[in-house]
Simulated assay, not measured.
Amino acid sequence: MTDLAKRNLKILGNSSSAGGSFQNIGITGECRFTGDVDCVKFTLTGNTDIEGNLRAEEIKLTGECNIRGRIDALSVKGRGELRVDSRMKAERFGYEGHLEVKEDCEAGEFRLSGVFEIGGLLSGDRLDIGLFGYSRAADVGGGAIRIKRSKGFKLITMVHPSREARFECGTIEGDLVELEYASAAIVRGGSVIIGPGCEIETVEYRESLEIHRSAKVGRKVKV
């Protein structure tokens, strides 16, 4: 079936679908898919569960989305809660809220403001993360990696003073690495900036290294 022959799916309210191949999918409300979903554009305002894989050129989410399989997309953006039981791969990822991916997460450009948990490797050409709470990944790799507390975190602590925004990881490796409030066993990079609140066991760098006075670094190795 060609793309032009694929039908659109529009859902208002509560519904369910067996999944399948579509042109555009628009959901306002709640929907449960019992199989794989393949479309050009997937738009959600509300809640959805997909008991399979989601493949789309463009995914736009506002609300809660649970994927029992994997996500393959050119663009994923939105806000709310996104949970993926397998892996996620996207050219561009921009999100505000909570992200959970059980396996690897790969994006050309990855921008997140919120809280996340990646069970495998988080990788991308450019990773720009603003932390709102405790987050973790098994490992991180990429070109330019920037992990800091979000600018809005101070506002959150005014309401929840005990809230903590930290990132924990095994290994972080990139060309340019800039970290705040991060804990890792190993950080490797060309140019590395270890900011406030960091606890790093070993830093290996090729070009330059900056360490904030409040950071704790066990070993520093120029390679």
Rank of each mutant, 00 (worst) to 15 (best):
T2A: 09
T2V: 04
D3N: 06
D3L: 13
K6V: 08
N8C: 02
K10T: 06
G13C: 04
G13M: 02
N14W: 03
S17T: 04
G20S: 03
F22Y: 15
N24D: 13
I25W: 00
G26Y: 00
G26V: 00
E30R: 09
E30F: 01
R32A: 08
V37G: 14
D38Q: 13
K41C: 04
T43L: 08
T43C: 05
N47V: 10
N47L: 01
N47C: 04
I50S: 11
I50D: 09
E51D: 14
A56F: 04
K60E: 14
G63D: 07
E64K: 11
C65M: 13
C65N: 12
I67K: 13
L74H: 10
E81Q: 11
L82W: 04
R87D: 12
M88F: 02
R92M: 13
F93H: 00
Y95Q: 06
E96F: 08
E96S: 13
L99I: 15
G108R: 13
E109F: 02
E109V: 15
L112T: 09
L112S: 14
S113G: 13
F116N: 06
G120V: 07
S123A: 14
S123G: 14
D125E: 14
I129G: 09
I129Y: 02
G130D: 01
F132K: 08
S135Q: 07
A138T: 04
D139N: 15
G142K: 09
G142E: 10
R146H: 10
I147T: 07
K148C: 10
L155T: 00
M158Y: 00
M158P: 00
S162N: 12
R163F: 02
E164C: 02
F167A: 02
F167R: 01
I172S: 10
E173W: 02
D175W: 03
Y181R: 01
A184I: 08
R188I: 02
S191C: 12
V192K: 07
I193K: 13
G197F: 09
C198M: 10
C198I: 05
E199A: 06
I200T: 06
E201W: 03
R206I: 07
L209R: 01
I211C: 02
R213P: 05
R213H: 13
S214W: 06
A215W: 00
K216G: 01
K216V: 14
K220W: 01
K220F: 01
V221Q: 10
K222T: 00
K222V: 02
